[in-house]
Design a protein around this nucleic acid. Sequence first.
DNA 1: TTCTTACTTTAGGTAAGATTAAAAATTAGT
DNA 2: ACTAATTTTTAATCTTACCTAAAGTAAGAA
Lengths: 217, 217
Amino acid sequence: MLSQSVQDYLKTIYKLQENTSAVSTTQIAKELDISGASVTGMLKRLAAMKLVDYNSYKGVRLTEDGTKVALEILRHHRLLELYLKESLGFSLAKVHDEACRLEHYVSDEFVERIDDLLGRPEYSPLGNPIPTKEGRIPESSYLPVTDAELNKQYIIKRIADDNHEMVAYFEEVGLIPGVDIMVLSKAPFNGPLTIKYSGKEYIVGNEVGRNIYVDAI
Amino acid sequence: MLSQSVQDYLKTIYKLQENTSAVSTTQIAKELDISGASVTGMLKRLAAMKLVDYNSYKGVRLTEDGTKVALEILRHHRLLELYLKESLGFSLAKVHDEACRLEHYVSDEFVERIDDLLGRPEYSPLGNPIPTKEGRIPESSYLPVTDAELNKQYIIKRIADDNHEMVAYFEEVGLIPGVDIMVLSKAPFNGPLTIKYSGKEYIVGNEVGRNIYVDAI
DNA sequence: TTCTTACTTTAGGTAAGATTAAAAATTAGT
DNA sequence: ACTAATTTTTAATCTTACCTAAAGTAAGAA
């Protein structure tokens, strides 16, 4: 079995890979909040295990094997998030941390059972796609609400899970996946947005808006 | 947070303490399947952390703090066992291993929620008492069925969880907590027992009988 | 009382995963 | 193209948790 640490590196590289072609040592170090030197050491080990392709100074990419592991962990994580919310009544703000710990230790049987119980869901409560057992993951391209057209009806599809306090805020004000939303106005120079959702008008900062992803209805 | 390893030592010492006054290095080593030298090293660290009272060559006992930690883990473990069985449909044979891994990583909130969901149960599916949040544990003294009187009605209260295959066997033949049982005969020299339960007669070895604990009805 | 045996501890080592400090490589700015 | 700044890697350590081999302790048998 791969260590929790190895699993976390692979998950992190997978996520960072979505934006950049090759992932740098520093990016990983920042994301995991450890020193760059530690990352270099681990990347060598991961390369020796054939989980990543690593070129000194050039960055790193997951191999096919590495991707498979990353997707498995992501599957665990996102199913756990949904399970914690739906079956155990956890708040949206807390599911991420709990899932981050448990994802490494639940057995495949555990995951299969909650998957069944939840009816083989496709999305986590934060709107992230859940990879299938076979490693397929629905490609979905959503729009940050900051880029939405004015006065057009959208639906919230995903909220970013990086920042816990922001997730808690989203939950509190009801800006969560599945909710209809319309942008009434955007202040210039990346200013705040006036949005309408659940029958009320609301003003949110640009930073916040960039963490809400929507899709046209 | 205490490491998984530290938690496992404390849990093991707690269990062994139930039979002996002071727990020896070798007992712990056997139980955890590691070398005696490793145990000595860890006991020193546990003593430095004030989790155990340790006297070289004399054995070890949990301090009050150590006991508190052990009971917390036991609570996690046994609640998880019941939860895995009742809510996720795990077989009795599998709950122990899964709980052994997860017990170290579930949050207090997780434990409280499953405790609520299960209606604050007092016993695990194998019949072990579940410590309360405050560390109270119902004292219960059951009888191995090998010591039961002949032709008297008993109820199975607990089955030993050390041996997975035996647990699987118990589950298969229906010898599980809550089932009524009567001993019809005992062969001499620790020979097999003829028992009657669930309307059928059955013969089990003495070894097996010593792992079934019963109480008079 | 000493010998034998079983148990326990000490000493020295390994591996994973982290650290800091210093050296080396890359990238950017003029 | 050359220097400066930034990244990245190397080198040397640390901690946890394990190991084996050797030495020390305790306790019963001779």
